[in-house]
Design a protein around this nucleic acid. Structure first.
Length: 432
DNA sequence: TTAGGGTTAG
């Protein structure tokens, strides 16, 4: 009878987790303990940890972790993997790493969990390294290992690694699924190999919302807005309903291509035609869209018409646009709201500082510098990278440590001149 | 009658 009780509680708790009612799952766990007489097993503890992950509540997770240790269930591979997942999704990578290395009987799921943990926490190289250790430890990667490591490859844009992994899938005859194909397609896009992405897309036996979103954003980020818009129509005809990601990709694509009215029209159609509620990200993109095109009045009127309270990104976007198109009055207004929300981020002041510099308002610029110094603020430098001859080169904004700095700037200058002749983007010119 | 890992934007 007692065993049945455990099963009954377990069914309730996991049922709540599956329907994403994490709060209720934790409440039931609480009730179970109060009612007494039932010792939770590893299944229940995995579900309970899963509920903490879903709530992104690391405090509850720590309490549960303590409980797990006391009840001796921390050695269980299911429970330990749930903990690795919970800590990494809450941003505590160190804890996840420690638990992973302490696991005695790591199975493939545990390895996969750690591979995605690294990538999720901004260490894609570690993720790729760990992947290559799977086989050394006697496991064959499955579709989930591949999907996870492909995500890591995508974020480093390391095409060679991506191709090697694609090779694994073919040689080891790893059973593919839609997640893997989506990740593969996205990886080729991110590494600039559009033809491969298209090939995979065309040959997919089934396409889901993520498939379409990957394609639309892939085209958009490579400046092919027309193709992105035509895919959107195709997607609708195929019966897949667009979501907030679809719209963000479309608006950002219009943004890159300078199709201002088209982008705004798409934004307006979100709620009216598709029943998708715009989020802050969509608002930010529209402000950016108007701002980039120099339509500052439209940008500001749009901010004033927002139905949700604008956050820092909205004001920052307006400030950057005001700087680019030298509208000091609007820039100061945007900066006022921005600094009210976030007074301690260096990059906010830097935008304002540059605007004053561009407008030759030296006294105001000096005041901003003084404030920054007083607050001890610095801006984190921008960074980009490229893979050439199997090696990834990283560049930091303003970095002059390279032996070939002079040469680099000479080439940049000549590209700038060339662009000027061709009537290029004034913002890029200014950067050069 | 129950358990752990994966894909899309900016």
């Amino acid at each position: 009878m007692r065993e049945k009780d455990v099963v009954a509680w377990g069914s309730m708790i996991s049922g709540f987790c599956q329907s994403r009612k994490f709060r209720e799952a934790l409440d039931y766990f609480g009730k179970m303990k109060v009612d007494g007489g039932v010792r939770p097993d590893s299944d229940i503890m995995s579900s309970v940890i899963n509920a903490c992950t879903g709530l992104e509540n690391v405090d509850s997770g720590c309490v549960i972790h303590g409980y797990v240790i006391k009840s001796g269930l921390h050695q269980d591979v299911y429970v330990a993997t749930s903990l690795v997942d919970m800590y990494s999704k809450c941003g505590f990578l160190g804890m996840a790493e420690r638990l992973f290395s302490d696991m005695h009987d790591k199975n493939l799921v545990a390895w996969n969990s750690m591979i995605s943990s690294y990538c999720r926490n901004g260490l894609p190289d570690q993720s790729i390294k760990l992947f290559s250790r799977i086989i050394q430890h006697g496991f064959y990667p499955d579709s989930i290992s591949i999907t996870s490591v492909l995500t890591a490859v995508s974020s480093t844009a390391a095409l060679l690694n991506g191709k090697i992994i694609h090779g694994y899938v073919i040689r080891l005859e790893i059973e593919s699924d839609i997640h893997l194909e989506n990740a593969l397609m996205d990886m080729y896009f991110k590494c600039g190999f559009l033809k491969y992405s298209e090939y995979i897309f065309q040959n997919m036996s089934q396409k889901d919302l993520v498939t379409w979103n990957c394609m639309i954003s892939g085209y958009g980020s490579h400046g092919n807005c027309i193709e992105a818009l035509s895919l959107f129509n195709e997607m609708k005809s195929s019966g897949i309903k667009p979501d907030d990601v679809t719209f963000l990709s479309l608006i950002s694509s219009c943004n890159h291509a300078g199709l201002v009215d088209e982008g705004h029209k798409i934004f307006q159609s979100m709620r009216a035609e598709h029943g998708v509620e715009p989020k802050m990200e969509h608002y930010v993109n529209i402000v950016d869209l108007f701002g980039r095109a120099g339509r500052l009045d439209d940008a500001y009127n749009f901010v004033k018409s927002m139905t949700i309270e604008p956050d820092r990104r909205v004001w920052l976007s307006l400030l950057c646009a005001s700087r680019t198109h030298l509208n000091v009055e609007l820039g100061e207004l945007a900066a006022h709201y921005l600094l009210k929300l976030e007074p301690d981020r260096g990059s906010n002041y830097v935008q304002l500082l540059h605007m004053y510099g561009d407008a030759e308002l030296w006294e105001k610029a000096a005041n901003i510098r003084a404030t920054m110094k007083e607050k001890g603020l610095k801006k984190t430098p921008g960074c980009s990278w490229i893979e050439l001859r199997d090696k990834v080169d990283v560049f930091f904004s303003g970095d002059s440590s390279s032996m070939r700095t002079v040469e680099i700037y000479e080439i940049l200058h000549s590209i700038g001149k060339h662009m000027e002749k061709e009537g290029g983007d004034s913002e890029i010119m200014e950067t050069i």
